[in-house]
Amino acid sequence: MKRENMKKISPEQAHSMLKKEGLDISLEQAEEVLVFLRKMANIVVSNYLNQSNHGEDS
């Protein structure tokens, strides 16, 4: 799936999902959670790709 076709979870959606799980946070906090998770996802993918590229050099 191309990145352009992927829909991002909105802060409102994240807030609703977290509330259903019993986590009572503000909409602003839900937005910060999303920012953090997106950063973490980018780091994990970058690390994975870097490890894969280094394995091919050997």
Results as ranks from 00 to 15, higher is better:
residue 1 M to T: 09
residue 1 M to S: 08
residue 2 K to I: 11
residue 3 R to T: 14
residue 3 R to D: 15
residue 4 E to Y: 07
residue 5 N to D: 08
residue 6 M to H: 05
residue 6 M to W: 01
residue 6 M to V: 06
residue 6 M to F: 07
residue 6 M to R: 07
residue 6 M to T: 00
residue 7 K to D: 09
residue 7 K to Q: 10
residue 8 K to M: 06
residue 8 K to T: 01
residue 8 K to I: 04
residue 8 K to N: 04
residue 9 I to L: 09
residue 9 I to E: 00
residue 10 S to R: 07
residue 10 S to A: 10
residue 10 S to N: 07
residue 10 S to D: 04
residue 11 P to M: 09
residue 11 P to H: 10
residue 12 E to A: 15
residue 12 E to I: 14
residue 12 E to P: 02
residue 13 Q to V: 06
residue 13 Q to S: 11
residue 13 Q to L: 09
residue 14 A to P: 01
residue 14 A to H: 01
residue 14 A to L: 08
residue 14 A to D: 05
residue 15 H to N: 00
residue 17 M to L: 14
residue 17 M to A: 13
residue 17 M to Y: 14
residue 17 M to C: 12
residue 18 L to R: 04
residue 18 L to F: 10
residue 18 L to K: 05
residue 18 L to N: 02
residue 19 K to P: 03
residue 19 K to D: 08
residue 19 K to Q: 12
residue 19 K to T: 11
residue 20 K to M: 13
residue 20 K to W: 10
residue 20 K to A: 10
residue 22 G to I: 05
residue 23 L to K: 15
residue 23 L to F: 15
residue 23 L to W: 14
residue 23 L to P: 11
residue 23 L to H: 15
residue 24 D to W: 10
residue 24 D to A: 07
residue 25 I to R: 01
residue 25 I to F: 09
residue 27 L to V: 02
residue 27 L to Q: 04
residue 28 E to P: 05
residue 28 E to H: 02
residue 28 E to T: 00
residue 28 E to N: 01
residue 29 Q to V: 01
residue 30 A to W: 02
residue 31 E to N: 07
residue 31 E to T: 05
residue 32 E to V: 03
residue 32 E to A: 02
residue 32 E to K: 10
residue 32 E to Y: 04
residue 32 E to S: 08
residue 33 V to L: 05
residue 33 V to I: 12
residue 33 V to E: 03
residue 33 V to S: 02
residue 34 L to C: 05
residue 34 L to T: 00
residue 35 V to I: 15
residue 35 V to T: 13
residue 35 V to L: 12
residue 36 F to Q: 11
residue 36 F to I: 12
residue 37 L to N: 03
residue 37 L to E: 05
residue 37 L to A: 07
residue 38 R to W: 02
residue 39 K to S: 14
residue 40 M to R: 09
residue 42 N to E: 13
residue 42 N to C: 12
residue 43 I to H: 04
residue 44 V to K: 09
residue 44 V to Q: 08
residue 45 V to S: 04
residue 45 V to I: 08
residue 47 N to P: 01
residue 47 N to M: 06
residue 48 Y to L: 10
residue 48 Y to C: 10
residue 49 L to V: 11
residue 49 L to E: 13
residue 50 N to I: 06
residue 50 N to P: 02
residue 50 N to T: 07
residue 51 Q to S: 10
residue 51 Q to Y: 11
residue 51 Q to K: 13
residue 52 S to D: 13
residue 52 S to F: 09
residue 53 N to A: 12
residue 53 N to C: 11
residue 53 N to S: 12
residue 54 H to E: 15
residue 54 H to P: 06
residue 55 G to L: 05
residue 55 G to I: 03
residue 55 G to H: 07
residue 55 G to M: 03
residue 56 E to W: 04
residue 56 E to S: 09
residue 57 D to N: 15
residue 57 D to I: 14
residue 58 S to E: 15
residue 58 S to A: 15
residue 58 S to V: 15
